[in-house]
């Protein structure tokens, strides 16, 4: 199939690579030319503009940062699309932005699918991402084979925007769990107890989780290099707390976690891993073991 790919960062580049390897013809465009070099050397075709990518593709995938980036990109892609084409966006954006883009495409007979992913750059490289998508269910026949090249868990959640709602829920549960792991680490350490032992004990019990394993592990060894850049989680919290305001839904724990992320950003750790939430706790309150 002819597939376009725009947004060749830590996630997008390996994803596009998997599509090439699966035998698809991949067209790319990137603002910074160099980020495409690796894919070009493996047979991808470089296009001069997003519209040219759209014109060369049945399906265009994008993986950029925020709502505004995707909306701007959609405006540039639109004139190139033939009716029947699909724009699959893997970025994490506001559900309302996804719905807006879908409505604008509809007049051209182009479909928009929001398909945010979970699993980080590791999951993108290993093709083990969880993909949660929203859009017309009839599109599954065309999309499922592509999604299966990129991820292991693929769920059609509902109509346009539903994928983004699922991603917001994912972030909410995951980062709250990171904060809980950080608080456990802080409490153990302040009490003079080795958190790695506490973690090992917890892993086998009811509190065991993927987050405790991965992020708790980074906290235990104090490896705060990303991983998942905390600024991305911070960005996602603005989206999900904004949805809560719009819908009139109280999210007390998420709001509290959002404030810890604000403090993390304020201390300049946005490009470090989200396990830095432990450092936020350490920057206030009792530092060392109890006297």
């Amino acid at each position: 199939m002819n597939i376009g790919f725009i947004g060749l960062g830590a996630m997008g580049a390996p994803m596009a690579g998997h599509l090439l390897q699966a035998g698809h013809a991949v067209s790319v465009w990137s603002r910074r030319g160099a980020s495409a070099d690796f894919l070009l050397s493996r047979g991808a075709a470089r296009c001069a503009s997003p519209a040219a990518v759209a014109a060369a593709s049945e399906i265009v995938c994008t993986n950029v940062t925020g709502s505004a980036d995707v909306e701007a990109l959609a405006d540039e892609l639109a004139p190139g699309f033939a009716p029947g084409a699909i724009h699959v966006d893997f970025s994490t954006i506001a559900p309302s932005a996804a719905r807006r883009i879908a409505a604008r495409y509809a007049t051209r007979g182009v479909d928009f699918v929001d398909a945010p992913v979970s699993g980080g750059s590791g999951g993108a490289q290993a093709a083990t991402l969880a993909i949660m998508w929203g859009g017309k269910s009839a599109l599954a026949i065309r999309l499922q084979p592509i999604f299966e090249v990129l991820g292991k868990t693929i769920v059609h959640v509902g109509e346009t925007g539903a994928g983004q709602v699922a991603k917001a829920c994912n972030q909410m549960v995951m980062v709250a769990a990171i904060e809980a792991a950080a608080e456990a680490a802080r409490l153990a350490d302040a009490a003079g107890i080795d958190f790695s032992k506490v973690r090992a004990a917890m892993m086998r019990g009811s509190a065991g989780s993927r987050v405790l394993e991965v992020f708790g592990g980074r906290m235990a060894t104090r490896e705060f290099a990303a991983g998942v850049e905390a600024r991305l989680h911070h960005k996602d919290y603005a989206l999900l707390l904004d949805e809560a305001t719009r819908l009139g839904v109280p999210l007390p724990v998420s709001a509290a976690v959002g404030q810890q992320l604000n403090a993390l950003m304020g201390q300049g750790w946005g490009q470090d891993d989200t396990s830095s939430l432990l450092r936020v706790l350490e920057s206030a309150g009792q530092r060392g073991p109890a006297p």
Partner: peptide, 10 residues
């Protein structure tokens, strides 16, 4: 604004 500036307002 708290989000934009990285401020903690619990």
């Amino acid at each position: 604004e708290a989000h934009r500036m990285g401020l903690m307002l619990p």
